[in-house]
């Protein structure tokens, strides 16, 4: 079924009364996901945002709670305030990335309330990629530029209209407002099929990567791999699946807040112990951890690789460390007796 962009825009604008709407907009720095009040503000022709939309569920710096001590009385206050949210224009890689984050923030023992309060109150409207950047490589992971995984409603841009697919119950509630849906014409159906069949031209073979990494903990590959890395956090902060964080207390006199801040495996403080000992005190062990976590540990723990091929880390890296080459290098590395 399709909906004209005019009708879609009307439904979008009406949602503003009930939802905070986050959508791609064009700013001085490229494409960013930001709050919008009208469909007219939304950038429709874009590859993807510079930074992933994960921050809407997992902010870079988040107050978990605040506390105050007065005499013998201690008051603790939750800082969590969540609005119903629609995230519009999420690309398939990022929608899949959120499903991977779900696995981190919920397991059989613990559900992270901060993440899931936001996640549960949000509706993701995914939009297929009509254009594919040279750094996109989602097809490597069995994903697709028109994959609907992780979206509640999935749209394909047909120019004047959207092809609409409602995926989940949450999506249904929002899609109920879409009016004047009609069947696709034969030409439009052909266009939809073409977009659905598209693959990224860049692909890396990950079929043997996990099992190879099982045998590579002490491999000399890590010795030279890390040489040019300058140890910044660009790759982690621009990754839709990186989720490591630090929890700290910001205390002033007798009151304070507990905050959660993004951390990154390349950062010097990441594994620094209180004793001063750092079990990962060099780039070699940090890079090994990054690769192992994404392509080995996460697979063993959650059954999926923790990379969706969005290519942001490739574009952002100041020294052009290309994760595709890093994977390829691991695939080809000579095994040594461990």
């Amino acid at each position: 079924m399709k909906i004209s962009k005019e009708k879609f825009g009307q439904a979008f604008d009406a949602l503003v009364a009930e939802y905070q709407i986050i959508a791609p907009v064009s700013d001085a720095n490229g494409i960013a996901f930001k709050g919008v009040k009208s469909f007219s503000e939304v950038k429709q022709d874009y590859l993807n945002s510079k930074l992933p939309p994960k921050a809407f569920f997992f902010p870079q710096h988040e107050k978990l709670m605040s506390y105050k001590k007065e005499g013998k009385d201690v008051t603790v206050k939750s800082e969590l305030k969540v609005e119903n949210t629609v995230l519009f224009g999420i690309r398939p890689c990022d929608a899949k990335g959120m499903q991977l984050l779900d696995m981190v923030f919920k397991n059989d023992q613990y559900t992270d309330p901060y993440y899931f309060e936001r996640r549960d109150k949000s509706v993701i409207i995914g939009v297929a990629c009509n254009k594919i950047a040279p750094t996109c490589f989602c097809s490597s992971f069995g994903l697709s530029p028109a994959g609907s995984e992780g979206s509640d409603i999935f749209l394909i841009d047909l120019g004047d209209s959207y092809d609409v697919e409602v995926i989940t119950e949450k999506g249904k509630a929002v899609a109920a407002r879409f009016e004047a849906l009609s069947e696709l014409s034969a030409d439009e159906q052909a266009l939809v099929d073409k977009i659905k069949d598209a693959e990224t031209s860049s692909k890396v073979d990950v079929s043997t990567t996990t099992s190879k990494l099982d045998k590579m903990f002490n491999n000399p590959y890590w010795d030279t791999l890390q040489e040019k890395c300058i140890g910044c956090n660009v790759c982690s902060f621009s990754c839709p699946t990186c989720h490591c964080f630090d929890i700290s207390e910001e205390v002033r006199k007798n009151e304070g807040t507990r905050v959660r801040t993004w951390d990154a495996c390349m950062a010097p403080l990441f594994t620094l112990h209180g004793s001063g000992h750092n079990p990962r005190d060099n780039k070699k062990t940090r890079w090994r951890q990054r690769m192992m976590h994404k392509f080995n540990y996460f697979v063993h723990n959650n059954g999926s690789m923790s990379c969706v091929g969005c290519g942001r880390c490739i574009k952002g890296c100041p020294v052009n460390m290309d994760i595709r080459q890093v994977i390829d290098g691991a695939n080809k590395a000579e095994l040594v007796v461990e």
């Binding site: 300058i230 140890g231 910044c232 956090n233 660009v234 902060f237 010097p268 100041p318």
Partner: peptide, 24 residues
């Protein structure tokens, strides 16, 4: 407002070599 504190600037700089940066 654009800065995301990734410290790429600091780490790319040949003269930012403090063993412990004041931000850490």
């Amino acid at each position: 407002s654009k800065c995301i504190r990734c410290y790429a600037c600091r780490n790319a700089c040949p003269l930012c070599y403090c063993q412990e940066c004041f931000v850490d």
